[in-house]
Design a protein around this nucleic acid. Sequence first.
RNA 1: GGCGGCGUAGCCAAGUGGUAAGGCGACGGCCUGCAAAGCCGUGAAUCCGGGGUUCGAAUCCCCGCGCCGCCUCCA
Length: 494
Amino acid sequence: MVIFPDGGERYLSTPLWVFPEPPRREDFRITNTLTGKKEIFESLEPGKVRIYTCGPTLNRRPHLGLYRRMLTADILRRWLEARGLEVTHVVNLTDFDDKTLAAAEAFGRPLKELTEELAREFFEDLAFLRIRPATHYPRVSEHLEEMLSLTRKLLQKGLAYERYSSVYFDVSKLPDYGRLSGVDLASLRAGATVDLDEYEKDSPADFTLFKRVTIQELKQGYFVDTEWGKVRPGWHIQCAALAMKYLGETFDIHTSGTDLLFPHHENERAIARALTGKELCRYWLHSALVLVEGRKMSVSAGNEVTLAELRAAGYTGREIRFFMLRTHYRKPLNFSWKALSEARRALSNLILFCGLLKAAPEGPSSEEAEEALRALREGFEAAMNDDLNVPQVLAELFRFSRRWYPLVVEKGLPPRLKEEALSTLEDVNRILEVLVFPEEARGEEILELLSKREAARRAGDYGTADRLREELRRRGFLVVDTPRGSRVFRLPDE
RNA sequence: GGCGGCGUAGCCAAGUGGUAAGGCGACGGCCUGCAAAGCCGUGAAUCCGGGGUUCGAAUCCCCGCGCCGCCUCCA
């Protein structure tokens, strides 16, 4: 007999036979934009996952906004891999569109030369942020045939039409157009941002698959010769074609930013649905924007912050990664120098803890320590499984370091336990990639400086002691005075 | 005007029905020769506001307010 505090009425307010499956800790759940719900992730093919991410347009060096998107995909991918799945990840490079052409024109450089330079810089930035390279980085300019072939199919099916040498997608043929972005075509303000008189589309909602080139572009030879005329692919067909070519008609996860949801993703999906009748992917994952003082970081707002700037200010890739990871991917991330420097501070405390742990003395076992480690392991897994809740993982790390601090600087711990803790932290770091485990200095020269400092301290010559500490610092070594004596750690290089 | 998102301490931020994690900073104390790191203590009568549902709401519903994004060949 069970007595409910409220007499049990609340249990009757819902149908008795419907028991929603409680989320299991081992299930990986992500928020799917298509359904608007947090769903349990299941891959289409056992043991394998196929992911597509909208990459950069190679007209200028990207700012933090793009890299946040890439970082979210990186975390997703690392977590899937940690769960034992084999990931194929495709990121497109837009090297042939209005923006890239405009940039080439503005700099007076050949298109290919400019875009390849920017691609190299993009890869450098990714490496700097420790973002794993994708499996494929297909370039738009190298897949024009695929885009043409999809467009021809759409024309054959009567889902696209030609007007004055441009080809448009006919949105009216697709009953559930707007489902992904929640946009209702009837209520859109057609012409709010575009002068309709310039275009020959049947409906303002229709979008370009291939557009006829301008005289300028014609002269420079930037076009494809087709049965419709000299044309260039539109934005949406590019991603749709690349995704389907490398990942198949339906793949697992499409990741990108919320700013691209409409019309871009809606249109990508529309193209795929029109061609195959199937969904382009099972899950759509959207990361929120990067803001600066409450505004979207963008070139047009003139408030963009590039990695090059942060680098010049002395920030490392890990620090920037950590800064961005402090905000859940679905929440807007407000950039500020103050927040960035606070992040740096918090991270360096965590890293120092890692060094102290590594150098921790041997000591007795402790149930309390075992418990704290277990809590870290379980908390980490539960948080990651809950829609990639990285900020929660960071909280677990801080909690753990606080609980273990007395052990690593004073009481000591059994070698086995230390190994387990290091291995757990490495597991966490395989996803976050923000920690380092500073080595205790071994070099003779360094140890000599340390013992000189010790001697000076014993002699009461604090001026010399402090100078030596500063000297070590300049050489990249940090002196930490613990209850068990002074230790010197080599700080991470970058 | 439409659609979507966000609003939690000085700042950053987790928490989506069970009585407000964590980080940075500040202040007081401990430790230290001094720092750094760490430890102890001090912080949200309360989660933008107002109603409602509930035994119970930051969490659900309704009405507002503020900010942000998107609104069709810009990415």
